[in-house]
């Protein structure tokens, strides 16, 4: 148990960060990351060392977050905006943003803006972004994790990136 506590101490920031990126809520992220550690303990014998322990644990927390997000989605009515996101929305037709909206920003400022922009994405788009950009998963891995086709992953990732660019550009203009 002491050795496991040491593992928790070593990886807790990463596991929490991943949960927070997906959930956008500090309290939920803490709860889900702790639940992930309990599951990790229960499944410890299944850890074969094919990936690093940190990677194995992040996959557990991602699956818990996905389950939670799906539950939340079922409980609320989908907005018209979210339906637009799924089918493309206006981002598909917008001209490219020619300047880098985050150029020259300090780390804290950058984090705040990305945080705000991520919060405005639907959970499907946010999750695809998190899995691709932070977890560095390939398209087929994301498709398997999210239980959808590779084409859907590609579309969601494209719209998520374009929407992020638009939102970050809007935030730059506001400043």
């Amino acid at each position: 148990m002491e050795a496991f506590e040491e593992l928790v101490a070593r990886h807790r920031d990463k596991i929490y960060a991943r949960a927070f990126s997906m959930m956008r809520n500090e309290e939920e992220a803490i709860d889900l990351s702790q639940e992930a550690w309990v599951k990790g303990w229960q499944r410890l014998v299944q850890f074969q060392g094919e990936s690093s322990f940190g990677t194995w644990m992040t996959r557990i927390v991602i699956n818990l977050c996905l389950d939670q997000l799906r539950k939340q989605k079922r409980q609320r009515t989908e907005s018209i905006e979210a339906m637009d996101d799924e089918t493309g929305g206006v981002e598909r037709h917008m001209p490219p943003i020619t300047i880098n909206p985050t150029a020259g920003l300090e780390r804290n400022e950058l984090r705040q803006r990305i945080d705000k922009a991520l919060g405005q994405l639907s959970y499907e788009h946010r999750t695809v972004l998190v899995l691709h950009e932070f977890e560095e998963m390939e398209y087929k891995e994301i498709a398997k994790t999210m239980n959808c086709s590779i084409g859907t992953v590609m579309s969601r990732l494209f719209y998520a990136r374009r929407k992020m660019a638009t939102l970050l550009n809007d935030l730059r203009k506001e400043k």
Binding site: R12, R107, I114, F134, R161, M164
Partner: peptide, 15 residues
């Protein structure tokens, strides 16, 4: 640009 901006996001997150 979007991908590079995102890459710096999680680095400073602390429990």
């Amino acid at each position: 640009n979007t991908r590079q901006s995102m890459a710096r996001f999680e680095a400073g997150v602390r429990l």
